[in-house]
Simulated scan of single mutants.
Amino acid sequence: MPETATAPWTATPGVTEKLELSLTTQGPLYPPSEVMDADGNFVVVGMVNRATPDGAIRPEWGAAIVSPDSPLPDFGDLAPYTVVRELDCEPDGPDKDIVLYTLPLPLPCNNYPMVFAPEQLPEAGRVKRPSHAFHEVPIPDLRPEDGPKLTTPVTFGAWMRASGTLEVGVTSDGCHGTFGFTFSRLVPNSVYTVMSLRARDLDPTGPTRPGPLGVPNVFVTDADGNGRYDATLPNPFPDPGLPEANRIINVVVLWMSYQRSYGGAIGEFGLGGDIHAHLKLRGASFQNLRTTAAPRS
């Protein structure tokens, strides 16, 4: 039966969904990607803003090399990306040998007004750092004799071999959501984290801070890039009509270039400065899942 504005909100205990995650390099639309190439261009796998014949701007899922000099609109608005060329996503295709890099700081082509770690680094926007190849990121306090495990370039072809599945559901009491991930062919021997994206995190009128999907939100891949992560969160799918409701609508699997996690923050800089989206769902999800707040004792 279709929901109405007056229909009572009831939880969906025991309901589960199994979803395939999509390969990506993108968080929000700006910066266009959380990964760059050696020339300082964005390596975009995700939504590409393109102009339509009627003059509109429409994001469409695709892959392209995008200039960092692309027009930058106000947060919440769109402008066409300056596409240098289209990108072949086949793991063994002609673009397989592109070496992947972090974004420099301050982040280029960024309009997201967010401090990701307000207690740890409230002045993150003032930090300056160059772009680094993924295998050459200067991990704090690391010495060669400590045995860094990632010592060869991470290429676009290797990045595009990854896969992941998510089984998400509601507990029997209707008050919690469970998230179970299985991954293969991620970057080997690496720290990854999982973040949640909530309905108001990209709200132009007042975005909320994206957060971890569970704390700690960390898993470490094995030598073949395999991994698993599980989390249970309180009331992640509340009635959207409630004043403070902020449902989880997506999840993002992040490669951590500094091989560390950040407690209750997803990163110090986010958006390619220290986190790099590798897998996510292509759009808002979990509409059929409902939770309610646990009764107060």
Score class of each variant (00 low, 15 high):
T193N: 10
D224L: 11
W255I: 06
Y192D: 05
S190C: 14
P234S: 12
T193V: 13
L197H: 10
D203R: 07
L242C: 00
P243K: 08
M195R: 10
N217V: 08
P212Y: 05
T208Y: 10
V251D: 02
S190R: 11
Y192N: 03
P207G: 14
V253L: 00
N246W: 11
P188V: 06
A199W: 14
L254T: 00
N235M: 03
R247A: 15
D201A: 11
Y192Q: 07
P236V: 02
P216G: 12
W255Q: 04
V218N: 02
V215K: 07
A223H: 10
A199T: 14
G206W: 07
R198F: 12
T221C: 01
R200G: 13
P207W: 15
N189P: 09
T205M: 08
I248S: 10
E244T: 13
T232G: 00
V187K: 08
P234R: 04
G227K: 00
R198E: 15
A245V: 11
V187H: 12
D224Y: 09
T232M: 10
P188M: 05
A231T: 02
D230F: 06
P234C: 03
P216F: 10
V218S: 08
A223E: 13
T205H: 10
T193C: 07
P236F: 04
V191D: 08
N226K: 02
L202P: 01
V253K: 01
T232I: 10
P236M: 04
M256S: 12
R200P: 10
D224T: 07
D239P: 09
V218P: 00
V194P: 09
Y229P: 00
A245L: 10
G206H: 05
A223I: 06
G241D: 06
N189F: 03
R198S: 14
L233V: 12
N217D: 14
G211W: 12
F237T: 08
G225A: 09
F237S: 06
M195G: 13
P234H: 06
R247P: 14
W255E: 04
Y229K: 00
V187D: 11
P207I: 13
P234V: 05
P188W: 07
Y192L: 04
L197G: 10
P236A: 02
R200A: 15
T208H: 15
P238Y: 01
L233F: 02
P238S: 01
L242E: 15
Y192F: 15
D201N: 15
A199P: 09
D230N: 11
R200H: 15
S257T: 13
R228F: 03
V220H: 06
F237I: 11
N246Y: 11
R228L: 00
D203Y: 06
D203E: 12
D201P: 09
R247W: 09
Y229A: 01
F237Q: 06
N246V: 01
Y192E: 06
T221E: 00
L197E: 15
L242A: 14
D230T: 10
A199E: 15
L197Q: 14
N217Q: 08
M195H: 01
P243M: 09
V215G: 03
P212N: 14
V194H: 09
V252W: 00
R198I: 10
P240T: 07
R198G: 11
R200S: 15
R247D: 11
G225F: 08
M195L: 13
D230M: 04
R209M: 13
G241H: 05
V218D: 05
V187C: 12
V194T: 08
V194D: 02
E244C: 07
V253T: 09
P188R: 03
V252K: 00
L202N: 14
T208F: 12
V251P: 04
S257E: 01
